[in-house]
Nucleic acid binder design. Structure first.
Length: 559
RNA sequence: AGUCCUGUAGUGUAAUGGUAGCACAAGAGAUUCUGACUCUCUUAGUCUAGGUUCGAGCCCUGGCAGGACUGCCA
């Protein structure tokens, strides 16, 4: 990109730039308003990167992004989720500074606005049953009909609303409705309910309230109260915007926020519905919200995904109103890119096969220095002990290899990564026909040098000393969902879950790995195996296991 | 009595009304002590029919297709 080239603005950034240029706003204030009813997932990352990203871009004007918990429904929200959300936003690399808010702190303000609406004759207490309200709303083709309680006097409404607040009604007996237009083609505008009775304990306000505002009413007020200028949300709220604007217009608010909608993230092979993810957790299909197979930010973190890669992925998504499905390969590409830079390399053998170097003395033990990263000297090197008996990956040997297979086979040469070039001289088979041991001879003096004249050696395989290596129980994770669109499944998850998404293997690992270090490994296509994060890993501490086999199997062999 | 939103290579996105670019994916090749990375090349696109215009992906009209909306959820 040339220096003179200005970055392309998506339509939201363009609106903000225009508002700044025209003097409508002196700065921009955005917000990320999760409901604390689940963990944040990769879909939220898009919204976080957008709202917080815009605030960062306009930092010079004093722009900011608020983290606000939209906790207006006491029945669905828990404190555990508040903490996880804060942690995940921070991990992603964003900071709300002083601007941490709870919608529940504004309950009095919402109430005052509702009273103001009643006084203007723009809201009324409806005592129809929920069923009656539903039936009289009409449908997509039929206008609604007005409630018999619609034309109560202001005084009566005021008194009734006060009694609602005082707890004189049971749930479902009375609601406060905005008086707009029961014949509106937009059903949201057909006298929407703005307050309902709920005798529930709220995680923040306890039992102070027994009436709670609806999202449609509360959200614009929250934005206005915080002087949010641009309230960015996903497309499903588009049809609610007329009521958002109506609320701002008719309530005593200190600022005029504007709601702008963009398309939410859809990823193939991924479920993003909180309700469905919660089902996975509750049914024990995964170990928790932060199971490495989960699309939650905490799951991706354990899986080893660098936050920078997720941010970069979100940047490339673009902001549009088109509902498409992003290929998860785009995310994985970013992850590979970052991990390839920062991950230290180690050797591990997941499916061990014994390799004996027959011209190596029993007690011979050669210390070979192996770089921790190919091409990054600053990451240092480590000494690995090479002995007569080694473990290699079973798939790195073929009894009858095709010509395009570059690794071990009878009479073939291969390099033991970081060590000698060896020539396969034979192998043994068990009664069941399975290869149990491979024999080879090493070529002295081939460490750190090119293969001698006439020796073809096109691959380097990884290995672990049978004597110095360590056996480790490793949990191997793979993709959770086996189908491209798991949301399309009719019922439950049985048909879309990959039964092999979690397996345990007895692997052989380098002694340089701390005890317990490779306890969780995520199989990552075309990059090798990565250690799943153990919560405390920093971005620079990721480990990658060398892997010789490409999943694509370009040599034409079996899968 | 339906209203509103959206259609650009396989996918995601760019293009003051003026040469349809980029990334990922896919394919071919080079390189390689990770069949990775990197590098080179290739394939492939404006939903449709009209209209306005010297000129339309962009503006207008009509089709077609996909989506949102009928919670006292957010």
């Amino acid at each position: 990109m040339s220096e003179t080239e200005t970055p392309k603005l998506d339509f939201i950034r363009q609106i903000i730039a225009d508002d700044l240029a025209s003097g409508k706003h002196e700065t921009t204030v955005t917000r990320f308003p999760p409901e604390p009813n689940g963990y944040l997932h990769i879909g939220h990352a898009k919204a976080i990167c957008l709202s917080f990203g815009i605030a960062e871009e306009h930092a010079a004007t004093g722009a900011r992004c608020h983290l606000r918990f939209d906790d207006t429904n006491p029945e669905k929200e828990e404190t555990e989720y508040v903490e996880s959300i804060k942690e995940d936003v921070h991990w992603l690399g964003f900071d709300w500074g002083e601007h941490l808010y709870f919608a529940s702190d504004y309950f009095s303000f919402f109430h005052d606005c509702a009273v103001a609406l009643i006084e203007k004759g723009l809201a009324y207490v409806d005592q129809q049953t929920p069923e009656q309200i539903r039936e009289t709303r009409g449908n997509l083709n039929v206008p609604g009909t007005e409630s018999p309680y619609r034309d109560r006097s202001v005084e009566e409404n005021l008194e009734l609303f006060a009694r609602m607040k005082a707890g004189e009604f049971k749930e479902g007996e009375a609601v406060l409705r905005a008086k707009i237009d029961m014949a509106s083609p937009n059903i949201v505008m057909r006298d929407p309910v703005i307050y309902r009775v709920m005798h529930a304990e709220h995680h923040n306000t306890g039992s102070d309230w027994c009436i709670y505002p609806m999202y449609d009413f509360a959200h614009p007020l929250e934005d206005a109260k915080e002087h949010v200028t641009h309230s960015l949300c996903t497309l499903e709220f588009e049809i609610h915007r007329p009521f958002y604007d109506w609320t701002i217009e008719h309530c005593p608010v200190p600022s005029q926020p504007r709601q702008i909608e963009f398309s939410r993230l859809n990823l193939n092979y991924t479920v993003m519905s909180k309700r469905k993810l919660l089902t996975l957790v509750k049914d024990g299909r995964v170990s928790g919200w932060d199971d490495p197979r989960m699309p939650t930010l905490s799951g991706l973190r354990r899986r080893g995904y660098p936050a920078a890669a997720i941010r970069s992925f979100c940047k490339g998504l673009g902001i549009t109103k088109y509902k498409g499905t992003t290929d998860i390969a785009l995310l994985e590409h970013e992850v590979r890119g970052y991990l390839n830079e920062v991950a230290a390399r180690r050797m591990a053998v997941l499916d061990p096969l014994k390799l004996v170097i027959t011209n190596f003395a029993e007690d011979q033990a050669d210390e070979v220095p192996i770089p921790n990263h190919p091409g990054k000297e600053e990451m240092g090197e480590r000494q690995v002990t090479l002995t007569r008996e080694l473990w290699i990956e079973r798939s790195d040997f073929m009894e009858d290899p095709p010509k395009k297979f570059f690794r071990l086979g009878p009479e073939r040469h291969v390099r033991l990564r970081g060590g000698y070039i060896v020539k396969c001289t034979g192998f043994e088979k068990g009664a069941d026909g399975e290869v149990t041991e491979v024999h080879c001879e090493y070529l002295p003096g081939t460490i750190g040098s090119n293969p001698p004249e006439g020796v073809k050696c096109k691959a380097a395989i990884h290995w672990v000393s049978a004597e110095h290596g360590r056996e480790a129980e490793v949990r191997l994770y793979d993709r959770l969902f086996s189908v491209e669109d798991p949301d399309a499944a009719e019922e439950g998850f049985a048909s879309v879950l990959n039964p092999d998404s979690l397996s345990t293997v007895t692997a052989q690992v380098e002694p340089s790995l701390a005890e317990g270090d490779p306890e969780e490994i995520f199989q990552f296509e075309r990059t090798g195996y990565f250690v799943a994060d153990r919560h405390d890993h920093q971005p620079g501490e990721r480990l990658a296991f060398n892997r010789t086999v490409a999943l694509r199997d370009s040599w034409g062999g079996k899968k």
